[in-house]
């Protein structure tokens, strides 16, 4: 019962191994100290949930912000220079600010939720060489069920990560 952890010291070699895994249609995960262009797509990542969530957050914020201002002006109408109680021009700025705020919140929260973070204790941290601080440590994590009949992956080191 253990996943396979492969270590690379070079991003290009990791990318090459990832491409081979992709061709062999394996599920796997890559761990890198900085984002590598195209790597997520090789692991099967193809989603745009974060932008959609942010849009939803923005719409929600705009509705709440504008609705809140309309509601408070109807609850306590203040006559300022004869302006109507519901003056949408006057509400535009605060509506936009709140919409931006909730969109930001949803983008951050959505990113964390989709990534299942925070996750302080994870099996990969058991590996003694696991570190995001070193610029030359890149990892591939292959789940237990996918380990049979792997193509040649040419890692610097291979280790097992118990589940």
């Amino acid at each position: 019962m253990a996943d396979l952890l492969l270590e690379y010291d070079d991003p290009d070699r990791l990318m090459a191994a990832a491409r081979r895994l992709r061709e062999a249609e394996r599920r796997f995960e890559a761990i890198t100290p900085y984002p590598l262009e195209g790597l997520a797509e090789l692991t099967g990542f193809a989603e745009a949930h974060v932008p959609k969530l942010a849009l939803a957050g923005g719409v929600l914020g705009a509705v709440l912000g504008f609705g809140g201002q309309v509601a408070t002006n109807l609850l306590y109408p203040i006559d300022v220079g004869g302006r109507p109680p519901v003056a949408w021009q006057g509400f535009a700025l605060v509506t936009a600010l709140i919409a931006i705020f909730t969109a930001m919140l949803f983008a951050l929260g959505g990113m964390l939720a989709l990534n299942r973070l925070p996750k302080l204790r994870h099996p990969v941290f058991d590996d003694p060489r696991m570190s995001l601080a070193e610029p030359d440590r890149f990892f591939l994590l292959i789940p237990e069920g996918e380990r049979e009949g792997l193509p040649e992956l040419d890692p610097r080191r291979a280790a097992e990560v118990p589940r």
Binding site: T32, Y34, A40, M111, L112, L114, K119
Partner: peptide, 12 residues
């Protein structure tokens, strides 16, 4: 927050 640099994490 337990960030571990997975590729899909980076993408999101």
């Amino acid at each position: 927050l337990g960030w571990r640099g997975e590729a899909r994490h980076w993408a999101r």
